[in-house]
Simulated assay, not measured.
Amino acid sequence: MATIKMNLQYFADEKTEKATPKKRNETRKKGQVPKSTDVNTSLMMLVVFLFLWMYGGQMIITMFANMQREIFTHYLVADVTSESAASLFQSISFQAVLAVLPLMVLAAFAGSFGSFIQVGAMFSTEPLKAKLNKLDPIKGFKRIFSARALVELAKSVLKISLVGTTVVIMIWTNLEEVMLLSQKSVTDAMSMIGWLTIMMGLAVAILLMVLSIPDYIYQRYDHEKQIRMSKKDIKDEHKNIEGDPRIKSKRKQKQMELAMQRMMQEIPNADVVITNPTHFAIVLKYDEQKAEAPFVVAKGMDFSAQRIKKRAQEHGIPMVENKLLARALFHQTDIGQQVPPDLFKAVAEVLAYVYRLKESQSNELRSRT
């Protein structure tokens, strides 16, 4: 028996169910989303090297022209001091930053766009919070030798091998130009090296973009596996959202009791009670100032019907037995609603009978007095 109980507990705690929308929102708020860093890296490299391919030469010429103008107009005629050397260094650094700034902006935009197409608009500071459990050596050891770590290692080895192969192929196909670099001028050699570097960067960027597709698919699969829930987790979440079933049942019972009390308070002012005679009881009232047609004050079935009839008897409210009309009113109307048009005639006949009965009773009282 104990073994069966343990097996049932194991299956109840096993993470076999897909995450609920609530669990997905919670993990997203914590910054836990499926994301491949290769998408960001490949987009950044592609944008940067495309920019260098189109505007790299002009950017370098502009940067060196500005540096030369600063040097020849200011620093060659200046005294060689520590202040002038520091000023020269600052000027060169500033020109280099201005030249590289467009690349940095493009790289940042490409990285942000890569994240956006994967996870959408999201901002979370949860990953930046310090967590002491990350310093746990046992958990760190488990992370290092986990299946996920082995997959990441295999991915890294594969990427390094493919990138290295791509670079070797690019150099091999242009080996003749590389071997002749020593015989070219500095300008031509630098131009050749720059062109070859850009071509290798573009090739590597395209390769990483291709590799990022299966990597993103794996990241989604691994994320879905990490956020799986057990049947017990889903049940507990449902309890937290909907409330404990026992408390919910008690609340519903209390609401029904309050509704019954309100109905009982309205019965003494009603005109008639239409009965089944045992299963249904519908209390009607006609007030020209409130509604154009008679409306339902209270209704009940079985035990509630018996309570309604008892209350009506205590206050002398007439009761009329009409099985078909009672059943139709019970199923077609709610408390506070007017009688449906197709039942007007039947209800009018009942009210006319009640009014004649009340009039005859009042005439008897007068004759006795």
Rank of each mutant, 00 (worst) to 15 (best):
Q9K: 12
E14M: 15
K18G: 02
T20E: 02
R24P: 00
R24V: 07
R24C: 00
R24Q: 10
N25E: 13
K30H: 04
V33L: 10
V33P: 01
N40Y: 00
M44P: 04
M45F: 15
L46R: 07
V48A: 15
F49K: 01
F49A: 03
F51L: 15
M54Y: 13
Y55W: 13
Q58S: 13
M59Q: 10
I61H: 12
I61Y: 07
T62C: 02
F64C: 07
A65N: 14
Q68F: 09
R69W: 06
F72A: 12
H74N: 12
V80T: 14
E83G: 07
A85D: 02
L88Y: 05
S91N: 02
I92Y: 03
M104E: 01
A107R: 03
S112R: 06
Q118D: 09
V119S: 03
F123Q: 00
E126I: 01
K129E: 14
L132S: 15
L132N: 13
L132G: 14
N133C: 00
L135D: 02
K139G: 13
G140V: 07
F141E: 00
R143N: 14
I144A: 09
I144S: 05
S146P: 13
E152A: 08
E152H: 06
E152P: 01
L153V: 10
S161A: 15
G164T: 03
V167C: 12
V168H: 06
E177N: 14
L181C: 09
K184H: 14
S185E: 08
D188R: 13
A189S: 15
A189V: 11
G194Q: 14
M200N: 09
A205V: 12
M209K: 00
V210D: 01
L211S: 00
L211H: 00
I213W: 03
I213H: 00
P214A: 10
P214L: 11
D215K: 02
Y216G: 08
I217V: 15
Y218A: 09
Y221K: 13
D222I: 12
I227N: 01
R228E: 06
M229G: 01
E237D: 10
K248M: 10
K248S: 07
Q253I: 05
Q253Y: 04
L258Y: 08
A259C: 06
M260W: 05
Q261F: 05
Q261R: 15
R262G: 04
M263E: 05
E266F: 03
P268D: 05
A270N: 07
V273G: 06
I274S: 05
I282Q: 09
V283P: 08
E292P: 04
A293N: 06
P294A: 15
F295C: 03
F295E: 02
Q306S: 05
R307F: 07
I317R: 07
E321D: 14
L324F: 05
L324H: 09
R327S: 04
A328E: 12
L329I: 10
T333R: 03
P340I: 09
L343K: 06
E349M: 12
Y355P: 02
K358R: 15
L365A: 15
L365V: 15
S367Q: 15
S367H: 12
